[in-house]
Design a protein around this nucleic acid. Structure first.
Lengths: 247, 247
DNA sequence: AAGTGGTCTAGACCACGGA
DNA sequence: CCGTGGTCTAGACCACTTA
């Protein structure tokens, strides 16, 4: 029978067994051996395959579940999570006066592909000359009359064929991520103040010189590679707020 | 020997054992049987006292650790966390261009006690006629020249004697929480836009009509009772941003 | 050396969901 | 009914801290 010490005693790998297992399982997710929505083998079988006890395998699986990468259902099985929405923020974090997420209607949308600018290259950690898709859309919530101008930059190699998909530019970015099988890891969004210029004022139905919330985010896939660079300008109306969950 | 089934079979309490234990331990924290910084009994002893296995006790302790309420150190013991800073946000979430928290200098500070207004009553869930402390301070970060106007409202019953402590109004609110043994649970902060009026402009060194970030927060203790109602106005300068951690 | 939390195992039983 | 994940136990050994 396998023994924990036989594995852990490897001088090249002294991390706890469950972390080593976690890393191997994570590999199955990042290289798409296991695809979103798919059911994976049960914990007994996995434990046997990896030569660890069920308890250790459970701990590795639980860690992945805590990270939102797996979903476990008693009586059913363990499933790969659907790709986390690329736009969990900022869209979900804009709330109405009752602290409910707003329902956004797509007002306009525009997609083009081009060689990345220096700024985009550095944000997305691309090499000189790599191409990106730029997706610009205006969203509106009729209940509060809040509006948002989104400017997303996506690496072409991750979203190959995006421009030939006629539906693509109409979809919320979150569904795009799902369609391209991209799993997004934890990250951060930075909030700034911004004064609307003439163009933004026209698109967002505000007056030039009005104050907007500027939301900047670089989303990274599980392995830390940037998959989306987004800047959004938001006009909060009628008690709408931007939510920051603490802890 | 105690047996899990003997306990869990109680028809009035069918939750998992480790959750029941978690609740009991949480009680020791909320009623200050265990005080911040104090070392608590080791897991073997606790397991024996509660009549559960060490594994179950570990799971309960781990849950409290995940919540930030206990700190466990291999070889040393398990300790009650210092009261979480009441001002973990917004102060820690304001970052400079290198994404480091700003160092704030207290510019001015003013403390008074009064009967709560209706608005304060409802925010802090107090009864008619209850009294509150109001703590207003202006903070400044010299490196970025960012400024913040903080307006904190604290229930008098939770901070008894605050006004007779001559040092109190100079301390950051986080240290106040620690001094009064208040453990803060998870929460949320809402970000809004705000246009500076004359008074705010003078205090924050901006021009009347300038846009400010308005940060609104109700902090609650572990049992969900509000312990702080804060509204802060922030002037972000020289690349400073307000950080929202995702997931 | 003694005491602490951290890891790992092996196996039992329970609760849930679907055939 | 069977297979799944969820809970619980008992005990071993390891790694770290302090005296």
């Amino acid at each position: 029978m396998h023994n924990a010490k036989n594995v852990a005693a490897n001088i090249f790998e002294t991390r706890p067994l469950y972390l080593q297992v976690h890393g191997r399982l994570l590999g199955f997710l990042t290289d798409a051996t296991w695809k979103p929505g798919q059911m994976i083998p049960n914990e007994i079988e996995l434990a046997r395959d990896f030569g660890v006890s069920v308890g250790t395998m459970r701990k590795a699986l639980q860690t992945l579940t805590d990270q939102g990468l797996l979903v476990r259902r008693q009586g059913r099985g363990t499933f790969v999570a659907q790709a986390q929405a690329l736009d969990a923020a900022p869209l979900d974090n804009v709330r109405n006066a009752r602290d409910e997420p707003l329902q956004w209607q797509l007002q306009s949308s525009q997609l083009d592909a081009a060689v990345a600018t220096d700024h985009e290259l550095s944000a997305l950690e691309l090499s000189e000359g790599e191409r990106v898709f730029r997706l610009q859309r205006v969203l509106r919530n009729s209940a509060t009359t809040s509006t948002m101008l989104e400017h997303c930059v996506l690496p072409e190699k991750r979203f190959a064929g995006l421009d030939s998909d006629s539906e693509a530019h109409k979809l919320p970015v979150g569904q795009l991520g799902r369609r391209y099988g991209i799993l997004v890891g934890p990250g951060a969004e930075h909030v700034e103040m911004h004064i609307a210029d003439t163009r933004e004022a026209a698109l967002l139905d505000v007056t030039r010189g009005d104050a907007l919330l500027k939301l900047v985010r670089i989303a990274r896939s599980l392995d830390g590679v940037p998959v989306e660079f987004r800047v959004a300008f938001c006009n909060l109306r009628m008690g709408s707020t931007y939510l920051n969950r603490i802890r």
